[in-house]
Amino acid sequence: MSDIFSGFFSGFADLVARLAEVLQPVFHTTATAAAIVLFTMVVRLAVHPLSRAAARGQKERARLAPQVAALRKKHAKNPERMQKAVMELHAKEKVSPLSGCLPSLFQLPAFFLMYHLFSTTELGGEANALLGHSLLAAPLDGRWHDALGDGGVFGPAGLVYLALFALVTAVATFNYRRTKRQMAANPLPAPGGADGQTMPGMGAMTKFMPLMSFMTLFTVAVVPLAAALYVVTSTTWSAVERAVLYRDVPGGAGAVAPAM
């Protein structure tokens, strides 16, 4: 089994290396980093049909919102019956409440593949040649703490990370504002008990959810730079994709979904 995985990783490393060779005349020493960005875009393009399906599902859920609200009011004193009724409504209308998670779930293997590829010194019994590549002054197998130890925040490698952090912050801010608008237009349901009180912790969750976009900053800081490039490219793609797919949904729904 280990030989199968080793051969798989070696084959993927060869794919990245060959793609970098094709891009080398244009991107020169940053060709491998450009290959990672291009690979991420190919993955996102392959997952795009799932994203479109998720958008259609979200629009259908928005259409069913009045009926769901009526069911919640009708079964306010019986949460189990209310949940069953909502699930039956979704099944009847062929709407999956989990469709919005599928694009992110299908990207996880690609992310972990990139993480492993630039965290392993040997592939197939040979030295991992990809570890010698960099994005400007920052090694693709390095992390932010490596950059801090080699020149500091404003050193050559540190500046590369500052640029990535700036891009992530801009995208996260865009997602944050969209999420706030979405939650204002479509508040999270807060079923209560017999006394009509809301569920404990629902208010804290409502305040925390818009901030989830900024968690990408932590990811970029701790994973190898190659994996960080995947995350940054994918997150940026998600922001643009959702802005287009959810443009006619009140409040820009979909911004709450994980943005990998």
Rank of each mutant, 00 (worst) to 15 (best):
F5Q: 13
G7Q: 07
F9S: 12
G11L: 05
D14C: 11
D14V: 13
L15D: 08
V16A: 04
R18V: 13
F27K: 07
T30I: 14
I36A: 04
I36H: 06
T40L: 05
L45N: 08
A46L: 15
S51C: 12
A54K: 02
A55L: 01
A62F: 10
A65H: 13
A65R: 15
Q67D: 12
V68E: 05
A76S: 12
P79Q: 04
V86T: 08
H90D: 05
A91I: 13
V95K: 06
V95W: 04
V95N: 02
P97L: 07
P97V: 11
S99H: 08
L105E: 01
L108C: 05
P109K: 04
F111T: 04
F112N: 10
L113Q: 07
H116E: 12
F118Q: 00
T120S: 13
L123V: 05
A129R: 12
L131T: 02
L131W: 00
L131Q: 00
L135W: 02
A138D: 00
P139Q: 00
P139C: 03
D141T: 10
R143G: 14
D146R: 01
G149D: 04
G152Q: 04
F154R: 03
G155H: 03
Y161H: 04
A163W: 02
L164N: 01
F165M: 09
A166I: 06
T169H: 01
A170S: 10
A170Y: 09
R178P: 07
K180V: 13
Q182W: 14
M183V: 10
M183R: 10
A184T: 09
N186L: 10
P187T: 03
A190L: 13
Q197I: 11
T198F: 05
M199Q: 13
M202I: 12
A204Y: 06
T206V: 11
M212F: 10
S213A: 15
F214R: 06
T219L: 15
T219V: 15
V220W: 01
A221Y: 03
V222F: 08
P224L: 05
L229V: 05
T233F: 00
V240Q: 01
V240P: 01
E241T: 00
L245V: 03
D248F: 00
V249P: 03
P250M: 09
G251K: 03
V256G: 15
A257N: 12
